[in-house]
Amino acid sequence: MTAARPEPVVVALAGVPSLGGLYARGVAGSVRPGRSRTVRSDDLPRTRLHVGGVSPDPAHLTDYQRLVGETGSDVLPAGFVHVLAFPVATALMVRGEFPLPLLGMVHLANHVEQRRPLTVTDELDIEVHAEGLAAHRSGVSVDLVATVRADDDVAWVGRSTYLAKGYQLSDGDAADDDRPRESPDAPTAPPTADAPLAPTARWRLAADTGRRYAAVSGDQNPIHTNPLAAKAFGFPRAIAHGMYTAARALAEVGPRARGEAFTWDVTFAKPVLLPSTVDVRIADDGAGHAFRVWSSRSGRTHLEGAVRPLP
């Protein structure tokens, strides 16, 4: 997919940008008059945003670990690295050259490769680029890829797939896209996937779950923090951050079972409306640990994924 792309242009940022300012730009950009709802597959910018010397803040790390149920270790949870890279990815998405609007973007899937552990004393180099613009049945999806290095060594790679609803790809071919891309409002999983499973856990997610994760992650997308804003984007109530639920699942797999180097995959099917109670199953499936989160009431799947050891 990237082979035909011309040379990337690396843009160095002085530091991790503030998400508050980025959102203001994102909101302005999203409602820009005359913005075309049709994009071409080569519309993605060649820009790679780079921030060096990022030093994790211990207090921030502790807040994150407490919130998602990780032990207060010096090792950075894979989801915390995502949080560190997220403002850089957002900065890329609010640049004028980026073809899709930040506002209302839906997180479809996330894939993380934790190649080796990162700790609170590591100085991180974060580089983010976009690729894989693809047609989706309710819009256009794009992958934001963050690569995190420590001592010039790639330690963590995260690929977040987002959907811009209502957009079209003029030259796209959805058929060659084999990654699971589920619309958040379509009946997704086949009946067999919704077959009854015994839960191993039950999460009671309070109404302020989105606000609490927003405070720690910086992801202040109003669909997570404000019921009225969520309504404006077609959700009856505020919805939980996908990366919060995925991070809780990763925490419940636990340090022993996931090991030092692992992949952490998740597909977001149906958003978790707040507040709500969800059933969770996290179990050894022979190749690692698979997890699934579903509505305690309806049985519909919210997200599923797996944590597997890296060789």
Binding site: T200, R202, V280
Partner: peptide
């Protein structure tokens, strides 16, 4: 603490199994 299930809910799973 790790599962959020009460002891009774846990035992209910075992009982069913």
């Amino acid at each position: 603490p790790r599962t959020g299930l009460s002891m009774g809910e846990h035992q209910a799973l075992t009982t069913a199994a």
